[in-house]
């Protein structure tokens, strides 16, 4: 299976490293960023293609790691060329774009897999399994938290900072947990949210939360932040059920913490506390997608899941802006 990656940002590079741990062959990359291109080829080999069509021509699977607002164009180009597609989350910037992408991929007979990587983080996957096993009974209250700093804070014109392009913190960051909550406890009926950016679009730091009501009666609290000081990034998970409780507090999986002494007056950069894994979640994700595309394994996450997560994220953004409760319809 030959892979072509579109985009050489953080996700493009992360996927490239992950593909190296699969039987697939990374054939090449397409990007408009000359610096990113050089670094990518230097680190991962393969070939740089100046034209997207040329790259698509050389591969079986196109892995789209471009900014959110560009997903639709890249997905449609790959689908029309008859190639299977892996696309970063969120599936698209708008529901209309997402629906169009799904329709065109279906017509072209190609797979569209959305890289909701949290489903491949072992602690999240294990918690879902424990719930599925019935170990904690009926799910009642879920708490999910994902707190870090604003991405590309020192890049003045980064697409992350333009809500038209990225959708802002709720679409870019909290969507991980919108997807996870729905994976664990099913469809969401209503969303209420508050956020700094929702109250004031020019807020220098964004922090927000959403309260979801699931159709099965469970309620979920999701917190997201681009307001924590760097290099802090923390996630937390808690699922309370009628017969038990799963807790995974922030910082609890720091299996390695390094404390280095000051040498020659230089304070060493501390580095983030780490939870080392032999196979990181991105590798697990790409290994799974490889098996989906080569062996017909049922995908852990579908394009429809990606669309449903987007619908919740957009509802949360709207609620944070208007202060109203948003009801979600049955189908997206």
């Amino acid at each position: 299976m030959r892979i072509g990656i579109v985009g050489t940002g953080f996700m493009g590079r992360t996927h490239a490293a992950a593909w190296k741990n699969t039987p697939a062959t990374l054939v090449g990359v397409h990007t408009l960023d000359p610096v990113g291109k050089e670094a990518f080829i230097g680190d991962f080999g393969s070939q740089a293609f100046d034209s997207l069509d040329e790259l698509i021509d050389q591969v079986d699977v196109v892995d789209i790691c471009t900014p959110t607002y560009l997903h639709m164009g890249h997905v449609i180009t790959a689908a029309r060329a008859g190639k299977h597609i892996i696309c970063e989350k969120p599936i698209a910037r708008t529901l209309e774009q997402g629906r169009e992408m799904i329709r065109i991929c279906r017509e072209a007979g190609v797979r569209l897999l959305i890289a909701h990587v949290v489903r491949f983080f072992p602690e999240y996957a294990r918690a879902k399994e424990i719930v599925e096993n019935g170990d904690i009974g009926q799910v009642a209250v879920i708490r999910l938290s994902r707190c870090g700093f604003k991405p590309a804070a020192n890049v003045p014109d980064s697409w992350f900072h333009d809500p038209e392009k990225s959708g802002g913190m709720m679409l870019d960051l909290m969507i991980h947990d919108f997807d996870y909550a729905r994976w664990v406890s099913g469809e969401v009926d209503s969303v209420f949210a508050r956020s700094a950016a929702g109250i004031n679009a020019d807020a220098p730091l964004d922090h927000g939360f959403a309260i979801l009501r699931h159709r099965n009666g469970a309620i979920t609290h999701i917190e997201g932040s681009w307001a924590y000081p760097p290099p802090l990034f923390r996630t937390a998970l808690e699922i309370a059920g009628s017969k038990g409780l799963i807790e995974h507090p922030a910082g609890s999986s720091n299996a390695v913490e390094m404390h280095l002494s000051v040498k020659d007056g230089v304070v060493p950069s501390t580095g983030l506390p780490r939870s080392p894994l032999i196979l990181d979640p991105y590798t697990l994700e790409m290994q799974h997608f490889y098996r989906v595309l080569t062996e017909g394994v049922t995908p852990r996450v579908t394009a429809e899941d990606g669309l449903a997560a987007l619908a919740i994220a957009l509802a949360a953004s709207e609620s944070a802006r208007t202060g109203s409760v948003i009801q979600l319809g049955g189908s997206h």
């Binding site: 009926q138 799910v139 009642a140 209250v141 209503s190 209420f192 309260i211 009501r213 009666g217 469970a218 309620i219 309370a240 059920g241 009628s242 202060g323 409760v325």
Partner: peptide, 13 residues
């Protein structure tokens, strides 16, 4: 000034 709340009855039912 304003309060929103969701509750349920699954735990300790």
């Amino acid at each position: 000034t304003r309060v929103y709340a969701q509750s349920n009855h699954i735990l300790y039912a």
